[in-house]
Every structure is written in C-alpha cells, then in structure tokens.
Nucleic acid binder design. Sequence first.
DNA 1: CATGAATGAGCGTTCATTCAT
DNA 2: AATGAATGAACGCTCATTCAT
Lengths: 199, 199, 199, 199
Amino acid sequence: MAAVNKHAKIILAATKVFAKKGFFNSRISDIAKEAKVADGTIYLYFNNKYDILLSIFEEEVGKIFDKTQQLLSEEEDPRRMLEIFTNQHLRQMKKNKNLAEVIQIELRQTNKVIKNYRNNKFSSYINIIAEIIRKGQKQGVFRPDILPDVAKRAFFGALDEVSRVWNVSLETHYTVDEITHQVLSLFLSGILIENPGKH
Amino acid sequence: MAAVNKHAKIILAATKVFAKKGFFNSRISDIAKEAKVADGTIYLYFNNKYDILLSIFEEEVGKIFDKTQQLLSEEEDPRRMLEIFTNQHLRQMKKNKNLAEVIQIELRQTNKVIKNYRNNKFSSYINIIAEIIRKGQKQGVFRPDILPDVAKRAFFGALDEVSRVWNVSLETHYTVDEITHQVLSLFLSGILIENPGKH
Amino acid sequence: MAAVNKHAKIILAATKVFAKKGFFNSRISDIAKEAKVADGTIYLYFNNKYDILLSIFEEEVGKIFDKTQQLLSEEEDPRRMLEIFTNQHLRQMKKNKNLAEVIQIELRQTNKVIKNYRNNKFSSYINIIAEIIRKGQKQGVFRPDILPDVAKRAFFGALDEVSRVWNVSLETHYTVDEITHQVLSLFLSGILIENPGKH
Amino acid sequence: MAAVNKHAKIILAATKVFAKKGFFNSRISDIAKEAKVADGTIYLYFNNKYDILLSIFEEEVGKIFDKTQQLLSEEEDPRRMLEIFTNQHLRQMKKNKNLAEVIQIELRQTNKVIKNYRNNKFSSYINIIAEIIRKGQKQGVFRPDILPDVAKRAFFGALDEVSRVWNVSLETHYTVDEITHQVLSLFLSGILIENPGKH
DNA sequence: CATGAATGAGCGTTCATTCAT
DNA sequence: AATGAATGAACGCTCATTCAT
C-alpha cells in the first residue's frame, strides 16, 4: 500500500470520526481503527492529533475551494456567481456531511490557533464571497453601500447555519435547490415585499 | 457569602474560562481559581463539568431571551422588530464577549446532546426570529414565499458569524450600529440594486 | 436531646451504615443522615471516621462480652458453658445483623491497627472460650492435649463463618438452636461415629 | 516481556499490596510500582481496580482448588481426605501469606458482589469439604446427623481463623503439622474426653 | 515502513474534615 | 452544642505519544 493511500485513508477516517464524536471526544485509536492502521502509524503521517484536524481543513477545504474557483471561472454575472457558490457549498455540505460537521464544529473551537483564519484555505474560501460582491459593485448590480467583508461573513454564516440542520436534526425536508433559492433570494432581494427605499 | 452568589460567581468564571480556552481545554481548577472557590465547591452547585456549560446556556441565553422579548413586546412593526432583535443581539454579544464565545463555540460541539436545540431556551430565542417573520407575512410586509424556519437560521447564522469577529480578530472596526444596519439592510432589501423580479 | 443520646444515635447509625455498605464505602454524610445529625456534629463525638469503627467494636462487643460473662457466671459445667456461649453468640449475631456484619467484615480489614486484637474487648471476648476450655481441662472433662489458644480461634472462626450466612445468602433456613446444636456437637464430640483412639 | 508475564507480575504485586494495606487502602500506583510497570499498563490487563481483586480470587483460589483436588483424587478414606485438605490449606496459607490475607480480608468486604460466593472458584473450594463429609456419611464413618453445608462452613471458618494468626500476630509458634493435628482432632473426635452420648 | 504494548502526565470528581455562624 | 457550606488533598482512570521489535 502506497504511502499516499495511508495518508488519505487516515484523513478520511479522521473526518468521519471527528464528525461523529467531535475533535475532543475522538480518540487516536478510534481513527486508527477506522483507518485500519495501527495507532503508531498515524504518527508517521501526522505530527499530532491536532495536526490531523488542521490537515483536514487545509486539504479538504482546499479541494472545495479549487472546485468552486473552477466553477466560477467561466461565469461573469455576479448574481449567477453567488448562486453557483451557494448551490455548490450547500451541495458539498450535504454530500460530505462528515466534512460539514468538522468545518462547522471544529471551526469554532480548539485552541484559537486556527480561529484567526486569515492566510489559510478557509479564509481564501470565504473571501470568494467578498470578491463576488466587489465584482458586482464594480458592475453596478450590487449596492455600493454593502461592506464586502461584513457581507461575506453574514452570507457564509447564513449558509453554515442553514446547512447544519442536515447533520443534526430531521426537521427539514427541503432539497438543496430549495434552500439555495431561499437563501439566495433573501440575500439578493431581501425579505421586504416593497423596497421603496432602494435606488 | 450567600449561595446564590457562589452560583453566579461560578457561572461567571466558567463563562470567562470557557470563552478563553474552550470547553475541553478548560480545567475545573481553572474555573475554581477564576471564581476564587475551591474545586470541590463547584460540585456543590453543579453536577459535573458539562452541567456548568448547560447552565450557562440555559441561564444566560434565558436572560437575553427575556430581555429581547421585553423589548419587542411594545413593537408591532415587523421591520422594526427585526431591527430591534438584530441590534439587541449584536449589542449583547459585544457587551458580553465571553458569553458570545461560549454560545458560538460550544453550541457546535460537545456530545450532540444540546445540538438538537429544540425544547430549550436557545431554541426559543431563535424562534423569535421565525415569529417576527410570520407576523410580517401576515401583515403583508414580508414576502410570503420565505420559509420562516429556514430564514430564522440564515438570519441567526449571519448575526452569529458577523459577531464572532469581535472576539477573534481585530479586522473590524465597525460599530454595533453600523453592523446592525448592514445586516438588517441585507436581509430586508437584499444586495441587488434593482429587484425587478419582486412581487 | 442529651449528648449521651447523640453519641448512641451515631453509633447505631454507623453500625447500620457500615453493615450495609462496608467501612470504606460508607460516607460520613451517610452516617450523619442516618443519625439525623449534621456531618460536623459527628466530629464532636468522634475524632475521625475510623474512631467510629473502633468505638463500635469496643462498645458493642463490650456489651456482648458483659452479657455473656453474666450468663456464664452462674454456670460451672464447661460443656454447658460452651453451649451457652455458642447459643448466645449466634443469637446476638442473628438479632443484631448489622453488628455481626461489622464484626465479620471490618475485623479483617482497615489498617491493621485493630487486627492485632489483644488488649481490647474483642480479644477478651474470644478469650472467654479459652477460659472455658481451660476450666474443662482442669475438671477433667476436656481433653488435655487440646491447646486452648488454638481451639478458641477454631471455635470462634467456626461460629463466625456459620453466622455469616445469615447476612449474605438465603441458603440456610436453620434456626439458631439447630445451628447451635450442630456446631456444639461437632466441637464436643467430633464428626466420627466411633472414637476408639480417644484417651 | 511477554504479556503473560505482565499479567502475572501485576497479580503478584497486587496480592502483595492488598495483603499489606487492604484493598481500599491500596493505590493503583502502589501496585504499579510494586510490579514495576506504569500505572496505565495495569489497565491493559484489568478493567479496574476491583477486577484485579476478583482476578486474584479466581485465579489463585483456582490454583489451590486444582492442587487440592489432585491431592485428594488418590484418597478414598474421608478421614484422610479431611486431613489432607486441612494440611494442604494451612500449608498454602502459610506459604502464600499474601494470598491468605487477601482471601481472609477481602472475602468479607467490598461491595457484596462476591460475598455470595456461590458459582465461583471459592465456592467450589469450600464445597470440597461438604463432599468429603457426604462421602464419609455414605461410608458410615461420619455421623449422619451432621449437616454438610453447615459443617463445611464451621470447618472452613475454623481453618481460616486459625491461619489468620500467621499474618497478624506473633503469638503462635506452632508448626503447620501441629495446627493440622489440633484442628483435625477437634473436628474428628471433639473436645470431650468421653462421648457417651454418641450414636 | 508498520506495529501496538507500554508509558505517565494529567484531570474530573469525591469526601473526610474544618470552622464561621 | 450544632450546623452544613466550604475546603483541597487525593486517586482511579484515560489516552496522546513513544519506541522496541
């Protein structure tokens, strides 16, 4: 078995285990068992437990980032770009629930090292939103008074919280497309029926 | 020192410690030291470490819930109500950064017991948003196609993610009122300059 | 309530609690609750937890010792004296099962201070048996080759083990008088049908 | 070092420590130090502290049981069998004083789980006595009015109490053979010089 | 490279004892 | 004398990490 496979197997197993039990409640032995390797083997590929978590972020979020960038590269309309981002994000989160859990849960915890997520893949990922907004403002289709760095957080927070429900409760039966439409519609047009103050 | 004070002191200390280090990285002895009581004293007021976390949620979120309800009780306009909720939430999170951290961080982790947060104070708090939306739909000022149970999550997620930045990074220098305006404006009117597709 | 009563109440409660849970598994608060006094009150009457155990021994065993001495004082026949001792012991153990437990269980444990039970009430109690044997040997009714200090232990051990069953299992349905007869008969006449080797 | 050795080393160390300090006064770290392993290593071989105690019982008592059975297998005379049992038991208790302590002390305590010692090795061991008695009764050499289930306890209790002295006090200087003779003689022929009431 | 037995630092929790009231 | 809230030392057990094989 090639080394690259072991690495991937451990990442996959750790994602599954972290998602199920949370980072702190997960044991190295749990991950080892799930990956079908010995406990010690994990330390041939990762420095420590926390390093596994970081690797998941960087690698898995990196994949989503790349995929999203690629999807957006052929699009020029900021409205469509936002739709693509939304749909792609929710779709990924639904497809890869384990990763969704890890992002959602672990993003907010551990020892603050990772929280200040500038200069990492996750930060880049979120900044895609800000870039789309800026592009729309340049094109004159998005309101110029919107602050991209505030709006990117609001938008990501909304997506994140909405998609959490997939892993936690059974209360929702909406499809990805329905949720995409709801959230996108909210952000694009707002909740008001009439927007007399708009211009 | 009256018992009620000890309880409050421990809650306060635990909130501070949890916010600083995260639940799992916090030690009972850290909380005891912060509260200036003996380790054992904590167990006179709480069943175990996790019980402290739950108590913070129920008690502190309960206070915010009550305060918010009171502020909203005199208002009839759903748009104003949403503004009041937003401003009040962001103001509380900025004022009580430790509690904000605990809510934001701990809400997503621990052993899934509290994650399914129906039937608790937190659930009630979030449902305020859904109620405001339903009221606005009845009054005909909010779009009827918006799903209140999806929108409440999107809205809370946006607020939550936006306010996180206060505790984590230094990147933002916006005031509460500016952020309130940004987020509210986004939700009410959307990001589009023109909304030809509306109604 | 007079102090003497508190002392007695605590002894009684402790005997009950120790019997039920064993010395190490018993909590001071258990005893306090059983005695209906505050935890701290116990320390007005006893130096520490272990002191309670010692007091039970000295006081309760002392009572049995006195009672037994009194019953034996009017008897001159060593055979009858042994019967009286046996019957009295088994009767007490059956009547006061809690004390029986404490004697049986706690006699063999704790920190060896008490185990070397010379110079205490329990030692005196066991020595009654040796005295009876010596008396019988002097009178020429008991075999002179029997060593009283060995036989006293064998006899007490037999009684102790036999009576344990009352507190632990349900396997026996024999009455005190039946058990008395069995044990006494064994010790007096042995298990052999014929004793040609005697004298 | 083979696993079987670690297991045995810990059993040996625990027996020693329990004998010296008693179960509740013994620390896992005491056992670990005595066995020259790390604290955590103990938990690779035993579930918890109490499990160590149970294992000592089952394993060590099992060995004595097997040895005794083997010694008795070639003997047909119940009188000789009783002598063999007695001698063998006392010899083992003198040889393995630590185990003797553990049996004597711990048998009567802990949380009553093992006290009802049917269906375990210890129960089997004691029942050897009852079987010998029944055999003697069938052969017509032991009195038929003796109840084997009462006598087995009386006999074991006598042996147990007599052998305790070896670990606790210095008062006795008798050899195993002397004690064997005393106890056996007592049980076979009784203490009376004449047994006119027999048969 | 891979293993998994062994390690031992670390922590949540308990509870005998104290002492201010 | 009596109380019971408060204390804090102590311990069973866990688990990330190491290393001999």
